[in-house]
């Protein structure tokens, strides 16, 4: 029995190229669908990862303020003592004078209120940040408890509500992001597989004829796999172009408090490569899956 010859590979490639030429229309259509689907999905990934960054930034803001009694201990000694508390990441000293000038700044135009106040009535304080792993309502409560025990501590304040709200908001956002991500991913796959299925369906008689004249499954699949890969390549590049163009178009017009959403969370080449790879994987897998049932001739 005759085995396949070495010319197989040459035929597979040249057939795939000519079939690409013949199916320019569907290839373009599939690339477009793939491009837009990927763009929408990565826009979502974009916003989520930026939002994550912003939320982490919020978490890094001052969480605890310790007001200190006058003339009990030196700023350095107090700072050392604070830094020894487990879970503390940093402490910034705010002197009585700085507190007063900050207050004056805040009262700009109404400095008269402070007239007649001779001695500086404001206490010095430390603004304290906690380590990531202590950044939970319980972790903060523990740090606060230790700080309160210091004899130079007048008062320890922290916004329990803020910390708890932030924690539950982040939790909610993570769950919502997973939900939306799964939904968008499924929608992308659904649209893709249908587009490819239509393209394969249009060529089912071609598949049948090739099988009937003795083509192996590999021989029949090859053009579709190569086409899927090319569509994925174009789709990935298109998705990138859509995102880049969209970003360029709105970047000047976005209010500054929303500008974070437009920041690039990944290096550009990594992003482009990831889009192309996602496109190629989807294109190839989609072709293989949707043509399988037509191979059984």
């Amino acid at each position: 029995m005759r085995k396949s010859g070495s010319a197989d590979f040459v035929y597979i490639i040249s057939d795939a190229l000519s079939s690409l030429k013949e199916s320019k229309g569907t290839t373009a259509l599939t690339s477009l669908t793939l491009g837009f689907s990927l763009a929408i999905f990565s826009l979502f990934v974009f916003v989520i990862s930026n939002l994550n960054g912003v939320m982490e930034g919020w978490g890094e803001k001052t969480q605890i303020v310790v007001y200190v009694k006058d003339n009990v201990s030196s700023a350095e000694a107090m700072k050392d003592s604070i830094m020894k508390v487990a879970g503390v990441r940093g402490a910034e000293f705010v002197s009585k004078e700085k507190a007063l000038s900050e207050l004056k700044g805040a009262l700009k135009g109404y400095e008269g209120i402070l007239e007649g106040v001779d001695a500086n009535p404001l206490p010095a304080s430390f603004e304290i940040k906690v380590l990531e792993e202590n950044n939970s309502p319980e972790g903060i409560a523990k740090v606060v408890g230790e700080l309160k025990a210091r004899d130079w501590a007048e008062d320890v304040q922290y916004s329990r509500e803020w910390v708890e709200k932030l924690a539950s908001f982040i939790k909610f956002m993570k769950i919502a992001a997973i939900g939306v991500g799964v939904f968008l991913g499924a929608a992308t796959l659904f649209i893709m597989s249908n587009t490819i299925r239509l393209a394969v369906y249009a060529r089912r008689s071609e598949i049948e004829i090739m099988k009937l004249v003795g083509a192996s499954d590999m021989y029949v699949r090859a053009p579709f796999v190569i086409e899927g890969a090319v569509q994925g390549l174009f789709g990935g590049i298109l998705a990138f172009a859509i995102l880049a163009a969209g970003r360029a178009a709105i970047i000047g017009q976005v209010p500054s408090y929303l500008a974070f959403a437009l920041e690039m969370p990944f290096p550009v080449p990594v992003f482009l490569l990831a889009l192309i790879m996602a496109g190629v994987v989807m294109g190839v897998a989609g072709s293989l899956i949707s043509m399988n049932r037509f191979l059984d001739v």
């Binding site: 010859g5 035929y11 013949e22 004829i209 004249v213 003795g214 083509a215 192996s216």
Partner: peptide, 19 residues
């Protein structure tokens, strides 16, 4: 969408016969 020549050639190509 294939020429007469290509249609006939197909049954040889799938066998891997040189061009």
């Amino acid at each position: 969408n294939k020429s007469v020549f290509d249609n006939v050639a197909l049954s040889l190509k799938v066998m891997g016969i040189p061009p």
